[in-house]
Amino acid sequence: MSIESTGGVPVNAEPVGADIDAPAQVPSSPQKGMFGITGTGDVSGFGGLVRRRPDVVGSPKPYGSYFDEVTDALEEAYPLFADAIEKVVVDRDELTLHIKAEKIAEVAQIMRDDESLRFELCSSVSGVDYLNSDARRLHVTYQLTSMTYRRRVRLEVAVPVDVPVPSVTSVYPTADWQERETYDMFGVVFTGHPNLTRILMPDDWEGHPQRKDYPLGGVPVEYKGAEIPPPDQRRVYQ
């Protein structure tokens, strides 16, 4: 099953075994928590329902709302549109443009400067780690705001670990600290950033804490001889 990432239009997952009349299979999980529990810890009987991460599928035109205007304007202003934009997703009344990582700074420049786009403000830059569901696991999202037209749009790029992303600081100086935070937390390297150092974690910290394979805590809590495992290894209901 080729799964790229979450987000986009949800696809209803069918329970495994539902079509062949066989007993539902309990999904295997690498987690083993307190009281020797394995799997999801679900005792309801609904645990046989397998959750499949849906593919992110591009939305068909017309997108509705102001989304058509934005994509058309970008297509007109940017000759490499077909090459640089991987897909356009409209979900929950929000527009996401998935962009090839190496093109992000160019696209941001046009998004800011073109008269019919005018996304003057870069509201937020942050990362998401889609470990195990996307080969290009590290995603960076840019929330742009057009104060002129009162619109929002999200740009999203995806890279594997160790592949850099061009920095947008030359277009949006506000991205300086936000890219530093994304580097600090996810290890995404932004080329062309004036000072890409850690910002929230100490300078000599090892690892990137917001990655999904980085444990939470990881230090057992000791209390009167008893030891409580770190939070990610305790019994969980999911």
Binding site: T6, P10, Q143, Y237
Partner: peptide, 13 residues
Amino acid sequence: EGFRVPPGQVYIG
């Protein structure tokens, strides 16, 4: 256990 939230992403300002 909590309730399930359909997959996807949103931004609210």
